[in-house]
């Protein structure tokens, strides 16, 4: 099948993109890396879109050190996230995540902002954002605002972003000196979406665990985190399995996903060097 776009316009900067979105109304659609959107258009899952191509907005690309956190522009591509030295040093979870995302040619164009805005329940970056306690930056006609990652992902392909807003960046707190950040996932083949995946962050303030592909949005597993803080790994696995309510679909059953989540938590704790707390 072939895509049918309603129209295409190239935005020069964020205000221009916002004007274009306003002009297009309900048909307006941001085009970033296109690695999900153009696929959906080709399959006619998305039809008649008025495309606002933001890929030439230089201000939305790149990584900067802002003191306590890293500011990562929405248009920073997966491949760039994977090789960026600041990210490797201060947010290594994102570096590791890139190895699990799709294939090289897709990582060369897909953007972190696109992956966050798209909010696929099986995607890696949304879960990383939740695990790291990241902040999402958005800009709309009423100005700029910041949304905590935990509050950003609302459901399958659904976020707190309004239709007339653009996701401009994500900022992630820098890891503290002794912090460990680990991603574990199970997929059928390298590059496939995860059947279930898990992020573990162990920092001075305590553990953070986020699970993906086990529900409509990434799950911050608070009961498991509390058990890990108390040094109780068996308790954490039991708590994690109790707080997940994964779907059964053609890829995996709910029971399998719940089981795998427990296995991944044990693997992650082991890699992080023990029981923590």
């Amino acid at each position: 099948m072939k895509a049918s776009a309603g129209g295409y316009a190239r935005a020069n900067d964020v205000p221009h993109a916002l004007q274009l979105l306003a002009l297009a109304g309900a048909a307006g659609r941001i085009l970033a890396g296109g690695q999900s959107l153009v696929a959906a258009m080709n399959m006619r899952l998305s039809d008649g879109d008025m495309l606002v191509d933001i890929t030439r907005i230089g201000a939305l690309r790149g990584v900067t050190d802002t003191g306590d956190s890293l500011h990562i522009g929405a248009l920073t591509r997966h491949a760039e996230v994977g090789t960026d030295p600041l990210i490797r040093t201060h947010a290594p979870l994102l570096t590791e995540a890139v190895h699990h995302i799709a294939h090289a040619a897709i990582r060369n164009r897909g953007t972190i902002g696109g992956a966050l805005a798209h909010a696929d329940p099986a995607a890696e970056f949304p879960a990383c954002a939740v695990a790291l306690g990241a902040v999402i930056h958005a800009e709309g006609p009423e100005g700029a605002r910041q949304i905590l990652a935990e509050d950003f992902f609302e459901g399958v392909f659904t976020t707190a972003l309004a239709e007339n807003e653009i996701l401009t960046a994500i900022s992630v707190p820098k890891a503290d000196a002794a912090e460990t950040q680990i991603m574990e996932e199970v997929a059928r083949r390298g590059g496939d979406y995860a059947l279930t995946g898990l992020c573990l962050v162990r920092r001075a303030a305590g553990h953070r665990v986020a699970v993906f592909s086990a529900g409509p949005a990434p799950v911050l597993a608070r009961a498991a985190m509390a058990a890990l803080d108390a040094g109780d790994i068996d308790g954490a696995v039991a708590a994690l399995q109790a707080e997940l309510d994964p779907p059964s679909d053609t890829q995996a059953s709910a029971g399998y996903r719940r089981h795998i989540a427990g296995v991944l938590l044990r693997r992650a704790v082991e890699r992080s060097g023990g029981q923590g707390a």
Binding site: G34, V38, A39, N42, M43, A105, N108, R109
Partner: peptide, 26 residues
């Protein structure tokens, strides 16, 4: 035509990309 098979892979600005997931306009 949804990025899975790789038969459309071409080189754009020095990098391999999916020819089916990039618009000609881009």
């Amino acid at each position: 035509e949804h990025g899975v098979c790789g038969a459309c892979t071409v080189r754009v600005d020095g990098q391999a990309v999916r020819g089916c997931l990039m618009l000609a306009a881009q």
